[in-house]
Amino acid sequence: MSKTRLEAFSDGVLAVAITLLVLDLHVDPGKGGSLLAQLGAAWPSFVAYVVSFLVIGVIWVNHHSIFRFAVTIDRLLLFWNLMLLMFVTTIPFTTSTLAGALADGDASDVRVAAVLYGGATTGFAVAFTFVWGRITLDLLRSGAMGAPERKRSMLRFSAGTVLYPILTLVGVLYAPAMLAGFALVSVYYLFNQTGASEA
C-alpha cells in the first residue's frame, strides 16, 4: 500500500471523529430557563468538546509529521495505524459519556466515565508509540537515524503512555482536573518535535 493511501484513509477517519464531537453540543432556547442558564449548565459538554477537539487535532498534526519519515508501509505499520484509529474513533463516545456524567453529578458515573476516557487516550498513546517505533526502526536500519537519537525520540514521543494513565487516576478523583491535564499534554505534543531529522 502507498503512503498516500494510508494517509488519505487516516485523514478521513480523523475528520469524521473530530466532526462527531460537535453533535453532542446542543441547547434548547425555547424550553425552560434562559439560554445563558442552559449554556452555563452545559459547561461539561463544551469543556469536554474543546479538550477532545484539541486531542484529535494534535493527533492529526503529529500523524502527518511522523509519516513524512515513513520509508516502508508494511502490514505491521498498517496494523498499528489501525489500532491508533480504533482508539481515536472512541473519543466522541467517551467525550459525550464524560460530559453527561459530569452534568448529572453522579460521582460513581463520573469515575467510570473518566476511566473510559482515560482508557481510550492511553490506547491511542500506546498505538501511536508503536507506529513511531516502527517508522524509526526503518530509519535506524537505513542509517538515517542513530540508536541514541532513536532512543531520545521514542522517550519524548511516548510520554503519553505514562501521563495518560496518571491523568486517568486523577480523573477518578476529580474529572475536571483530568480534562485540564489532557489539554496540557496535547499542548506538549503540539510543540514537541519527534527529534528526527528530515529524511
Rank of each mutant, 00 (worst) to 15 (best):
residue 1 M to V: 13
residue 4 T to G: 10
residue 6 L to I: 04
residue 7 E to T: 12
residue 7 E to W: 12
residue 8 A to K: 08
residue 9 F to M: 06
residue 11 D to W: 00
residue 12 G to N: 11
residue 15 A to W: 03
residue 16 V to C: 12
residue 17 A to C: 09
residue 18 I to L: 04
residue 18 I to R: 01
residue 19 T to I: 10
residue 19 T to L: 07
residue 19 T to H: 10
residue 20 L to S: 05
residue 22 V to S: 13
residue 25 L to C: 09
residue 25 L to V: 06
residue 29 P to V: 06
residue 31 K to S: 11
residue 32 G to D: 15
residue 33 G to Y: 03
residue 34 S to R: 12
residue 34 S to T: 15
residue 35 L to Q: 13
residue 36 L to W: 14
residue 36 L to Q: 14
residue 36 L to S: 14
residue 37 A to V: 07
residue 41 A to Q: 14
residue 42 A to E: 14
residue 42 A to D: 15
residue 53 F to H: 03
residue 54 L to W: 10
residue 55 V to Q: 03
residue 57 G to Q: 07
residue 57 G to T: 05
residue 59 I to E: 00
residue 60 W to V: 00
residue 63 H to L: 01
residue 63 H to S: 00
residue 64 H to T: 03
residue 64 H to R: 04
residue 64 H to G: 03
residue 68 R to T: 06
residue 69 F to I: 09
residue 70 A to Q: 01
residue 73 I to T: 12
residue 73 I to C: 06
residue 75 R to T: 11
residue 78 L to M: 08
residue 78 L to A: 09
residue 79 F to S: 06
residue 79 F to D: 11
residue 80 W to H: 07
residue 81 N to C: 02
residue 83 M to D: 04
residue 84 L to D: 03
residue 85 L to S: 08
residue 85 L to D: 05
residue 87 F to M: 13
residue 88 V to K: 00
residue 89 T to V: 11
residue 90 T to R: 10
residue 92 P to N: 08
residue 92 P to K: 06
residue 95 T to A: 05
residue 97 T to N: 15
residue 98 L to A: 14
residue 98 L to E: 13
residue 99 A to S: 15
residue 102 L to P: 05
residue 103 A to H: 12
residue 103 A to N: 07
residue 104 D to F: 13
residue 104 D to I: 12
residue 108 S to Q: 15
residue 109 D to K: 15
residue 110 V to G: 03
residue 114 A to Y: 01
residue 116 L to Q: 10
residue 119 G to P: 01
residue 119 G to I: 06
residue 120 A to S: 15
residue 121 T to Q: 14
residue 121 T to N: 13
residue 121 T to R: 12
residue 122 T to P: 12
residue 123 G to Y: 02
residue 123 G to E: 03
residue 128 F to H: 03
residue 130 F to G: 02
residue 132 W to V: 02
residue 135 I to R: 00
residue 136 T to Q: 09
residue 137 L to G: 08
residue 138 D to R: 10
residue 139 L to M: 07
residue 141 R to M: 07
residue 148 P to I: 04
residue 149 E to W: 08
residue 149 E to C: 04
residue 152 R to N: 06
residue 152 R to Q: 13
residue 158 S to C: 04
residue 158 S to Q: 12
residue 161 T to N: 06
residue 165 P to S: 09
residue 167 L to A: 05
residue 168 T to Y: 03
residue 169 L to P: 02
residue 169 L to A: 05
residue 170 V to T: 09
residue 170 V to E: 05
residue 172 V to H: 05
residue 173 L to T: 09
residue 173 L to Q: 12
residue 176 P to D: 13
residue 177 A to D: 11
residue 178 M to K: 04
residue 179 L to Q: 04
residue 181 G to M: 10
residue 183 A to E: 03
residue 185 V to P: 00
residue 186 S to M: 03
residue 187 V to K: 02
residue 191 F to I: 13
residue 195 G to S: 07
residue 196 A to F: 08
